[in-house]
Design a protein around this nucleic acid. Structure first.
Lengths: 253, 253
DNA sequence: GAGATCCATTAGGAAAGGCTAACTTTTTAA
DNA sequence: TTAAAAAGTTAGCCTTTCCTAATGGATCTC
């Protein structure tokens, strides 16, 4: 056995895992929040392997008590598995914030680098970066950063832009995309987190949007990944102060 | 084959290598600067594997044109291999400087973290960190950082403290140690790079040193790893070759 | 409700990179 | 100069993680 990825105990009391195993756990965690759950096929897509490989790995993870699984069913994390996954998510998002804020990465560049670093940084690195950034709670995409205690605040109040009725106003808070091209498009359209928007109309193929006076169509595929802190349509009371001009803030948290 | 460590071409036109292969190249490079050169045994020690594994890997690296080797002889890097090794050394030392200066790591903590990160950071990361630090030319141990063009200035003028004759004065410039305990000792003795010293006497088991007025014994094992920017002793010019405690200084990273 | 279709699993195998044990070559020292 | 010690190599094996091909379930549609 390779000593470097052996079975020493980490801070969670969990065995330390290969990068590959960590990746599986993270993707299971992220997919578990979606409607279909973490299926073999989706995991294979996300991780970049064949479904047969996923099945094999899930068996191993189940033996190690990190997931629970029934054949032909979506897999679920155990509490131990979840802790490891959330720790990775924390690393990832903290790193994204760090790359963006401290090293001046463009917001569409941070994901890939964070993906590589997240498996490798130490507890100390995590802590130092968190301090340097004054314990941020959002990464550049607006995704919440789990706390050191691995509590992950979920955004109950956010709604996908695609689901908003005509007339809704709000502020874009999260962009749940990873694809470079898509991210570049979002930037080009000035739809970064922090941008105030109004829904001018809905169409079968997308949403017509008003941003800083100009109007354009956001394709459904994109609109499903723009999460909005939304107020109900104009007539009723506004619970929250609105962003001034809607001038997008490049790397806001 | 795993696509992530596949054979795409990098900036050097070199195939991208596994972390393991990268480690071998780096250690070959570092050991090549020592008297014994990069032998199977020393590589095994440094990398933390058995000699048989080293032989196997060296064969593979030779096939890929990264090293030249004759059985039972020390191995040498080809120009291609050297470039990859120096790039890693650059990553490592740049990271050490970064961890120390930007994240506030203690100087004895930086090595281990840099060891993990050096294989993983991108060209962009390297560049951004270099900019952030205003293109440093030394890491916290005083080791020179190769330039972006992979030129590595060697310290011709530095001498191991262990080799200095009584009466020599100078300034400590490099500490070529990795061991945490040894580094802590060096710090406790106030022997960090930049410290002015004078050799008060030589003994079979070490060197008696004057630092900031106080006098103490530096064990030979340590003295071999403290590189001094030295002036000749006050009165007479002393011939360089003193033997006895003098053992070759392994330039660890 | 019965194919058709998609998804998941099993079986068998390959590459990477370790290991041990046995053997060969080089070096050292008597 | 030769025998012992040290260093290096070879052969054979193991684990991890991926793959393809074939098979077995689940699901959707008419």
């Amino acid at each position: 056995m390779n000593a470097a990825i052996g079975k020493q105990r980490g801070r969670n009391g969990s065995a330390s895992l290969s990068h590959s195993q960590q990746d599986y756990l993270k993707q299971i965690f992220l997919l578990s929040a979606t409607s279909r759950g973490a299926t073999t096929q989706l995991l294979a897509d996300r991780i970049g392997v064949r479904p047969a490989s996923v099945t094999g790995m899930l068996k191993k993870l189940a033996e190690e008590g990190l997931v629970e699984r029934a054949p032909y069913r979506a897999v679920h994390l155990t509490e131990t598995g979840r802790r490891i996954a959330v720790e990775l998510v924390r690393h990832h998002r903290l790193l994204e914030a760090f790359l963006s804020r401290t090293l001046g990465y463009r917001w569409d560049e941070v994901h890939e680098e964070a993906e590589a670093l997240e498996h490798v940084i130490s507890e100390r690195f995590e802590q130092k970066v968190a301090e340097l950034l004054a314990h941020p709670d959002r990464d550049p995409h607006g995704d919440p950063i789990p706390t050191r205690e691995l509590a992950l605040e979920e955004d109950q109040h956010l709604t996908a832009l695609a689901l908003l009725p005509k007339g809704s106003q709000g502020t874009i808070r999260r962009v749940t995309l990873q694809d470079q091209d898509a991210l570049n498009l979002v930037e080009k359209l000035d739809l970064l987190p922090g941008t105030a928007i109004e829904v001018a109309g809905t169409h079968p193929d997308g949403i017509s949007l008003l941003v800083a006076g100009s109007r354009f169509l956001v394709p459904s595929l994109l609109a499903a990944h723009l999460l909005v802190d939304h107020a109900p349509p104009p007539s009723s009371a506004q619970p929250e102060t609105r962003e001034g001009t809607g001038r997008p803030v490049a790397h806001e948290q």
